[in-house]
């Protein structure tokens, strides 16, 4: 199971990549493994303003469904248009092709609440 060093993580199993004030968000390898084969991803529209900790989308497998929570607040500036037709990208490439939304960061302070890779790995091991 992978925990890329450059990412930040949430307790709800989202990952965040920060580049130039933009947060790219997806679900972690651990999350996709727990869900099983993903069959559907519901994403917000571009322009939606998200609030940290609130649900912004849904990931479904055959037997389970899970909300996806915004790790940070801000406006959605791009969504992954591939996911509605190829939801399996969440399974095959959770950290790259399976990204979900890009959020224009509203408040850098929120980043302090996120875990780094080591802390998340420890968190996952405790959960198991």
């Amino acid at each position: 199971m992978e925990f890329p060093e450059e990412l930040k993580y949430t307790e709800e199993h989202e990952w965040v990549l920060i580049e130039d004030g933009v947060a790219t968000v997806g679900i972690t390898d651990f999350a996709q493994d727990a869900l099983g084969d993903v069959v559907f991803v519901e994403l917000p529209e571009v322009g939606t303003v998200l609030e940290a900790g609130k649900s912004f989308g849904v990931v479904e497998s055959v037997k389970a469904v899970s909300d996806v929570y915004a790790p940070v607040s801000g406006e959605v500036i791009e969504i992954n248009e591939e996911l509605p037709d190829t939801p399996e990208l969440v399974n095959t490439s959770p950290y790259e092709d399976g990204w979900m939304v890009k959020i224009k960061l509203a408040d850098n302070v929120e980043l302090d609440d996120l875990m780094d890779a080591d802390a998340y790995q420890e968190f996952v091991e405790d959960e198991e």
């Binding site: 055959v62 037997k63 389970a64 469904v65």
Partner: peptide
């Protein structure tokens, strides 16, 4: 599409 249904959601 069972995830719409009560036994899962």
């Amino acid at each position: 599409l069972s995830t719409r249904e009560q036994h899962i959601r």
